[in-house]
Every structure is written in structure tokens, then in C-alpha cells.
Design a binder for these strands. Structure first.
Lengths: 145, 145
DNA sequence: GATTGACTTGAAAATGATTTTCATTTATAA
DNA sequence: TTATAAATGAAAATCATTTTCAAGTCAATC
């Protein structure tokens, strides 16, 4: 019988272990950081933040860990204007991102109403729409003030 | 008195000249290609396609020309999954992109109904939404068959 | 608790896209 | 036709990401 994980970090580590990965120090540090971050982080940012308390970390390990976490659907890539990527804890189900342009805070929202727009567009263009990519930008409640 | 441009290529070249740029051979070739392309092209693609008839072209010139065209709002960056960019003739006003996953054909559509979704999301999250980024993927009429 | 072997790691080098530098070429105004 | 400032192409520099490989570490087994 499986007891529920104490918190999200434990849950991620359980998932990783269940998938055959070893729970190493670098992995644990990176997971802790990503679970706790309210905004998407880039590889270099993760590298710098983890090295504050774990100076031996290599940048390559950051990339390799992000690859694992993305493969398990635990983190999601967030596209940047400049082509680089940042990484954010993923959400369950199909949700979209709302990103604060001031502090970077990322919030998921449902956005079901997109189906109407998609139907309209199919009629208008003759395309068969199979997938979509939506991201909203603005000010989070804290930054509005 | 200004006569209307004969075609889109002339229009782009007029805009470039009016902005103080010189109308060089490399520039003309790249503009002709982008005006005629139904799908977004990457720098290397442009480089290869133009060199078929203008072998002296340098890749650097492609990047510099794209920069000018983007600054004038004549082309638009299209983000790729891998972080690279492609470039597509821009549209007038605020429209979104619909891209064929098979042949790459890009079509613009209005998508005004997004305002409802944005209002909902603002109420739901407390954010002030200022901007958005929407792209649809699917099969174009020709590729559906 | 010690041992073993495979998975992970970190450093350095490789890669690929993009940018910068600079001497040469070229468009355009005089 | 000439002068000159802008644009070009080649090579080198930069930056993000990936690959290579020897050394280190986790976790199963003794």
C-alpha cells in the first residue's frame, strides 16, 4: 500500500526513482529549487542558485536533470522571446500559462473557451486544427499595485 | 505624389528605402524570397535558397537583413519548438498564426473572440492581462486530403 | 557494514546558431 | 564621374546546448 507523499518534492523524487533514476545530491537540489519556484527558471539561473549551497554542481548536470524532469512531465518548457528556454513545474491536464511581465510569476489557467475560437477558425480557413499554443502576459495581483 | 506600389516586393523595397536603407542586390533577393514564401523560413534556408541564384551571399547578410525587416514590421518571427526562429511576412493589425504541421504553410486568422477568454481569466486570477501569444497547429486544406 | 557495477557526475571539448570585427565593395548623392 | 558612408562577406567571437570520457556515487548484494 502506498502512502501519499508528504510534499511535492517527495512526490517528484518518488516518480524519478520509480522511473529508475538514482536520487543523487545534484538531482535533489535541482528538484527542490524547481518545486519551490513561482516562476520559470533558465538553466544558468538554476546553476547559479543551486551552487550557492552546492558549489560543485556542473552546468551539464542541470541540462541533463531538466531533460529527465521534462520527460516525466514534471516540468514544462516556457519559450522566451530570445529563443532560450526556461523551465516551470508542470500542471495536471491541459492548462495555459499566464506570466507576470514584471516579476515573472507564472500561473496556470484553464481556458476551455478556446474550443469556440478553434471551431470558428477551422470554418474560416479550411484547416483541421490539431494543437495550440497560448500564453498570456500581464501583471500579477501583487505587481498591479 | 506617390503612385501605389506595383506589388508587395516593390512595397517592401520602398519602405526600406524610405527608412534610409540602400537597395542592394542581397537585400532585393532576400525580400523577393520572403514576399513569395507561403511558409516561415529560417536563416539557413534563406541563405541556401538565395545562393542558388546569387552564390556570393553571406549568411551574416541574411541575419542583418532579417533584423531590418523585423524592425520595420515587414516580417515576423515564428518560434520553433527547438528555440530557433523562422521568419514570415507579417500581417496588418493584430492577427494570429495557423501553421500546417505537414507542409509548414502559415495562414493568419483574426481570433477576436480571445477577448472573452482574457476577461474570464482576469476575473479568475486577479492578473491584469496586457498581451498574448497564440498559435494554432493543424493540417491545411491541401494536406487534409 | 563492505563490495561491486552500473548510473551520474563534472570538466573539457564539440557543436550550432547568432553576433561582432574589419577590410573591401557598392549604392547613391553631389 | 567621383566621393563617401552604408552594406557586404569572411573569419573570429560569443552564447546556449550537447557530447565525450574519466572519475565519483548510489543502491543492490554479499
Amino acid at each position: 500500500m502506498n502512502l501519499p507523499p508528504l510534499n511535492l518534492t517527495e512526490e517528484w523524487l518518488d516518480r524519478l526513482q520509480a522511473s529508475g533514476y538514482r536520487l543523487t545530491q545534484p538531482l535533489r537540489r535541482i528538484v527542490e529549487l524547481l518545486v519551490a519556484s513561482p516562476r520559470a527558471l533558465g538553466p544558468i539561473e538554476i546553476y547559479d542558485l543551486v551552487r550557492v549551497h552546492y558549489p560543485n554542481l556542473g552546468l551539464v548536470t542541470v541540462y541533463r536533470t531538466l531533460e529527465k524532469l521534462e520527460a516525466l512531465g514534471l516540468v514544462q518548457r516556457v519559450h522566451q522571446e530570445d529563443g532560450c528556454h526556461r523551465y516551470l513545474r508542470a500542471t495536471q491536464g491541459h492548462q495555459h500559462l499566464l506570466i507576470c511581465t514584471r516579476c515573472g510569476r507564472a500561473t496556470y489557467f484553464a481556458g476551455d473557451d478556446l474550443s469556440r475560437l478553434i471551431r470558428h477558425t477551422e470554418e474560416e480557413t479550411g484547416y483541421l486544427v490539431q494543437d495550440h499554443w497560448l500564453q498570456l502576459y500581464g501583471l500579477c495581483p501583487a505587481c498591479r499595485q
